[in-house]
């Protein structure tokens, strides 16, 4: 596979479960990219990931993971693709009575390219003794072990589903460092679903947001955090601001609250020049999520 081809691609993915429906989800992870996948609980993040991994069958749409069609992931055609895929769920799935060295033994037989030396190096780095049983591991240790497993067989794509949830800041730092190292190789990519947007601000290249089963935005992270801003306005300023040419042709989004109005601006530096008296803060991914999901368009 050439390096420029996406590692993961989904096009118009659909899946219906009773009241919930995943609708026309488009998602791409290119080599060298960390894509943050955000959204509320029940928005469709895990359903998308399950569809991509072949755990559920989509009702519509197509996609590929490491070159294999997602509908083939459960068949023998998907096995080669899964050799190049590392997956970390929010819990460590191995049985409690197993020791870490047993997991090494099993995965060595599972993956053709299992690298025992690399696995042991990760254990050392994470301070995990291979005599420990799964039931003796804390949540953070379990996640680190899951990551060590996902990174020790020559995977090119990592899919993490809420893998950093519940970790303390130090453990999260270590995980993020590891992900940075992983994508330092241009052929590698990461899809990371998370509620912790501060983590994504630190490592993501692109942020994709899903709400109620639809993708509501797919933007480069730097565009959100480095260029966009939140103008903290008084209600009476709104009309003047909306009349000015600071929205670059996009529909402005507004969040009203008790003490005033927040306005999403596409270029906070241009806004500060145009309205020097109105404070304009840096936009965070959380802010952008709020504007997109809860804000109103004018």
């Amino acid at each position: 596979m050439s390096d420029s081809r996406p590692l993961l691609e989904a096009h118009r993915l659909c899946k219906r479960y009773g009241d919930f429906a995943l609708r026309n989800v488009d998602l791409t992870v290119r080599p060298g990219e960390i894509v943050g996948y955000v959204g509320r609980n029940g928005a469709g993040k895990t359903t998308t990931i399950k569809a991509l991994l072949g755990l559920i069958r989509p009702d519509g749409g197509e996609g590929t993971v490491m070159g294999a069609p997602i509908r083939e992931m459960g068949r023998s055609e998907g096995v080669a693709a899964k050799e190049l895929l590392g997956v970390v769920f929010d819990t460590l799935a191995f049985p409690d009575a197993l020791r870490i060295r047993d997991i090494n033994g099993v995965l060595r037989r599972c993956y053709r390219q299992w690298d025992e030396r690399r696995f042991r190096a990760y254990l050392k780095r994470f301070d995990l003794r291979d005599t420990k049983k799964v039931k003796e591991l804390s949540r953070g240790m379990g996640m680190k072990l899951s990551l060590a497993c996902a990174l020790s067989h020559g995977a090119r794509l990592l899919i993490l589903d809420e893998a950093t949830a519940g970790l303390d800041p130090m453990a999260r730092d270590e995980v993020l460092d590891l992900l940075r190292e992983f994508v330092a190789d241009d052929g590698h990519g990461v899809l990371m679903s998370s509620h912790i947007t501060s983590d994504l601000e630190r490592i993501a290249d692109r942020v994709v947001c899903i709400d109620d089963g639809r993708i509501v935005f797919d933007k480069p992270k730097d565009e959100i955090t480095d260029t966009m801003g939140v103008a903290r306005c008084r209600a009476r300023d709104i009309d003047a601001i909306l009349g000015a040419d600071v929205f670059g042709g996009t529909a402005p989004r507004i969040l009203r609250h008790e003490y005033g109005v927040d306005l999403a601006v596409p270029d906070r530096f241009a806004f500060a020049e145009a309205f020097p008296d109105i404070p304009c803060d840096r936009m965070t991914i959380d802010d952008y999520l709020h504007f997109t999901i809860k804000g109103v368009s004018r």
Binding site: K50, L53, G54, L55, M73, G74, R75, S76, G78, V79, A80, K82, E83, L85, V87, F89, A93, L107, C110, Y111, R112
Partner: peptide, 10 residues
């Protein structure tokens, strides 16, 4: 679910 992410077919 995890087992299905390993290089195995159904």
């Amino acid at each position: 679910s995890y087992r299905m992410t390993l290089p195995l077919s159904r």
